[in-house]
Design a protein around this nucleic acid. Structure first.
Length: 194
DNA sequence: CAACCGATCACCT
DNA sequence: GGTGATCGGTTGC
């Protein structure tokens, strides 16, 4: 394609989540079509949330390392996918150096290219994963690669970024760790939080 | 080993 | 605005 897109390198994901999360806005999420299979899916990230490690009781990593949340403690730039409420998948990318937990949840994206409308919206973590075909299969995979699921930068920058509380959590709900491209129609959450 | 609950969404009232 | 669907991880017995 016309890819002036560069994959994000590992150093991009080294800072803490609250620093990486806003920087991910406007970047491109590229979904592998699957082995030998479908077209490459591309969407621009419009909404993210930061989940810290120790001290952030809303984070899966808050209670220490487990088999499930291991990717959050691993090397930066890797996928952490989990199943929520038995039906929805959520995609995170790990940040911070190996040994330190941190992650950024992808909450919403906007289709680039022809998939728009056909596969439904990508507004909301569950729909984002459904639309991009993300399942537990991608859990732990390296998002800085060029093949399969990865992240890229085409130089586009969001005009304005809004910061709010995180959505859908009870613990530590007051922290301003949700980042959204201001006024973007593909953002999720309550009106007035865009 | 069993019970509980969650970083959600769609549909109902 | 409220709740059911549905299941893996964590916790407690």
């Amino acid at each position: 394609m016309d890819c002036s897109c560069k994959p994000l390198q590992r150093s991009f994901f080294l800072p803490p989540p609250d620093e990486v999360a806003p920087r991910l806005l406007g970047k491109i999420l590229v979904g592998g079509g699957g082995r030998g299979g479908g077209a490459e899916l591309r969407a621009r990230i419009v909404e993210t949330e930061a989940y810290l490690g120790q001290g952030d009781t809303a984070a899966h990593a808050a209670r220490g390392l487990t088999r499930r949340n291991a990717p959050l403690f691993g090397a930066p730039g890797h996928a952490y996918v989990y199943l929520i409420y038995g039906m929805h998948f959520c995609l995170n990318v790990s940040t911070c150096a190996a040994g330190t937990a941190g992650g950024v949840l992808f909450r919403a994206a906007a289709w680039l290219s022809p998939e728009a409308g056909l596969a439904g919206s990508l507004s909301g973590p569950g729909r984002l994963c459904a639309g991009m075909g993300i399942t537990l299969e991608q859990n732990g995979s390296d998002l800085t690669g060029r093949g399969g699921l990865h992240l890229a930068d085409d130089g586009w920058r969001p005009p304005e970024i809004a910061v709010t509380r995180r959505i859908g959590i009870r613990q530590a709900a007051e922290l301003p760790l949700r980042f959204v491209i201001a006024g973007h129609p593909a953002a999720s959450g309550p009106r007035g939080w865009r």
